[in-house]
Design a binder for these strands. Sequence first.
DNA 1: CAGATATATACTAAATATAGTATATACTGT
DNA 2: ACAGTATATACTATATTTAGTATATATCTG
Lengths: 127, 127
Amino acid sequence: MEVSEIYKCIADPQRLRIINLLEVGPLCVCHMQEILEVPQVKMSKQLSSMKQLGLLEAHREGTWMIYKLVDPVEGLITANLCYLREAACGECSQLQRDLTKRKKLILKVTKIENDCPQEVCEQIACC
Amino acid sequence: MEVSEIYKCIADPQRLRIINLLEVGPLCVCHMQEILEVPQVKMSKQLSSMKQLGLLEAHREGTWMIYKLVDPVEGLITANLCYLREAACGECSQLQRDLTKRKKLILKVTKIENDCPQEVCEQIACC
DNA sequence: CAGATATATACTAAATATAGTATATACTGT
DNA sequence: ACAGTATATACTATATTTAGTATATATCTG
């Protein structure tokens, strides 16, 4: 993966937000959609372009597709997330808010689906 | 300046190389051209787009235009250069080679223009 | 098998970015 | 004022990216 491709990828705010979410752990498409409030087509196309690039991978679980960052995560990605999460700017605080939203969403989901202990849930993403 | 604009900027290898050069100190257009071996139009257009963005500023010195990074340098830029200069990849080693080339070029220029002590030269860029 | 849900793809229109050629401007030295 | 050097801009062609609508696929449930 080329440096310039990575930058081109995170140069799109929506894609950056997706990566920010996935860096914390895998997520299924519908939950990312809910967090980012973005139309299904757009989400799907962005995910597939990032998968194509070699940044994400996905597996199916029932009707859901679970996406995650390819392991090991590109150092350049990690370094930038690290910087942005500390920084003070519009896009940066958005990233923070997304992570908060993610946490709440997962808590809610685990309660509905019941009995999935939070730690496990965090690990397998969408329960 | 938006985060996404900065990424879009450095997503172009040539622009990244320019920023990498200028981070070390100001330079005039013709010397950047010589180092990057890129046609005059392209260089000029890229510089002007980065100036427009608020990343660079320029002043005239005779027939030369001296460009420099706006002070203070965007933290995101600094952080990324810092990462890339250490990293091992094609684009990264290119950045290193550019800096070497820059050093040699300046030494050569200072000799021709004579008597400009290197430290001063480094500071005022193209002598 | 039919209907529902989640996700992906094809196709098209529209917007953006890039590259090249020619030309213009600003300055210097004569 | 004129020729030369350095740099910028206008204009155009071309490529790349993005967005939207419609449609397809995969899986589950009854």
